[in-house]
Simulated scan of single mutants.
Amino acid sequence: MRPVYLDVTRLLKGILFRKRATGVDRVSLAYVRHYGEDARAVLAARGHHFAVSHQASRRLFDVIKHYYEDDGRVERFQLANALLSSARSRIERGGVLIHTSHSGAEFDRYFRSLKLNGVDVVFMVHDLIPLTHASYCRTGTAQVHERRLRSALSMSSGIIANSRATLDDMTGYAASNGFRVPPAVVAKLAPGTEIGNDATAPIAGPYFVMVGTIEPRKNHLLILDVWRQMVERLGASAPKLVVIGREGWKCSNVIELLKNNALWQGTVAWYPDCPDTALGGWLKHARALLFPSFTEGYGMPVAEALTGGVPVIASDLSVLREYASDIPDYLDPLDLASWQARIMAYSNVDSPERAQQLARLVRFQVPTWEKHFEQVDRLLADLGS
């Protein structure tokens, strides 16, 4: 196989700032696990980049895996030592750089310099949300993301899309803007975390879980409105809601509500810094994962829940139907009454609605990293032929 290089800049920044892994990070970590034995690490800043030796790459990859797989229990000095011992070098002509995080691709000199030096770039596209739904994103994100897409379309040798929906969006963007789409594959994402096996539920009584960064497109406000109405009617006997995810952007109103314990009478809990081991335990005993997003590039928590046998109540998004088929219960993300009715129905111990989804769950075809990398390896082989 040709020399493989992995851009791990975003993963290393996550360690430096002690962040929990998002879906994008989980994907990048899967690439470190799959290719790390033979690949070399690449670091970049504002389009300037360098590779490190195989030996230094092993150290960096080990630090990355220990941090993200061991709930953040790694000291930053270990990362500093690995970086300080990393001698810089160029990426070899004939090599292939796999870029899995979007981050840094807005600086086109990154891809341009690699192309000029005979290096193939394979770029993963997670979504086009900053362009298709700019109002949900930070100010300026649309312009940055467009530069990333233009770099990928004009200078990369191959594209990895996490879903057919994402590839269709990118193909449409390319056609509208005069670009040719490089050779591309759809490689579905496997779960990034496992459901726990704890026999005992973390709390008593029926509860539901939401997983994801607190940001407008995740639609936390709808679910909090549902809970406000249930608490007004049922008081402390209302089912519980567990919100797992760090604070994002344009979400000050949601954060204020989550912190207002008196309003929820003990029925809503927020965990902004939840380790993966605890996340798996919360999902294991939930009545359902609630996923009312307005838009998604993939929706990894849905795949994680279904893989672990946990029912899902979700927005009716084409990308979810692409891999989850008809298994979840799908609702309009604006239909508060329907969400409330379904949540109350699922709260019952003998819920027929929940039992019906559990029966459908046996048909779920679990996406695996093995199948994902079969697609990616095929693309890499075609580029080298």
Rank of each mutant, 00 (worst) to 15 (best):
R2Q: 10
L6E: 03
L6K: 09
L11I: 04
L12E: 08
K13V: 10
I15G: 11
I15P: 15
A21V: 11
T22Q: 08
D25G: 00
R26A: 04
S28E: 11
S28Q: 08
Y31T: 04
Y35C: 04
Y35M: 06
R40Q: 12
L43T: 15
A45Y: 14
A45D: 15
R46F: 03
S53R: 05
S53P: 01
H54D: 09
S57M: 05
R58M: 10
R59W: 04
F61N: 08
D62I: 08
V63S: 02
V63Y: 01
E69N: 14
E69M: 04
E69F: 10
G72Y: 05
G72H: 04
E75T: 02
F77T: 13
L79D: 03
L83N: 06
S85D: 02
R93G: 07
R93I: 02
G94Q: 05
G94A: 04
G94D: 00
G95T: 08
G95H: 02
S101Y: 01
S101T: 15
R109D: 07
F111W: 06
L114C: 07
V121S: 13
V125N: 05
T132M: 15
S135Q: 14
S135N: 14
Y136G: 03
C137G: 05
T139S: 13
G140H: 07
G140M: 01
T141G: 00
H145L: 07
S151V: 02
L153G: 06
A161H: 09
A161S: 15
A165G: 07
L167S: 11
D169G: 01
M170P: 06
N177I: 00
G178F: 02
F179P: 00
V181A: 09
P182G: 00
V185F: 04
A187T: 09
K188H: 14
A190Q: 04
E194I: 14
I195V: 15
I195D: 09
G196F: 04
D198S: 08
G205H: 06
F208I: 05
V209M: 03
V209R: 11
M210Q: 14
M210I: 15
V211K: 14
V211A: 04
E215S: 03
R217G: 01
N219E: 07
L221F: 00
L221I: 07
V226A: 01
W227V: 01
R228N: 12
E232F: 01
L234S: 12
G235K: 05
G245F: 01
K250R: 11
S252F: 03
A262G: 14
L263E: 14
W264G: 03
W264A: 06
Q265W: 03
Q265K: 13
A269R: 10
A269G: 02
W270H: 15
W270A: 05
D273G: 15
T277R: 15
A278W: 01
L279E: 12
H285P: 10
P292R: 11
S293C: 00
E296S: 02
G297M: 02
M300C: 03
M300N: 14
M300T: 12
A303L: 12
L306W: 12
R321A: 02
Y323H: 13
I327S: 04
A337E: 14
S338K: 12
A341T: 10
R342A: 11
Y346F: 07
D350E: 12
S351R: 12
Q356Y: 13
R360M: 03
V362F: 04
R363W: 01
F364G: 06
Q365F: 00
W369P: 14
K371E: 12
H372F: 02
L379C: 11
L383I: 11
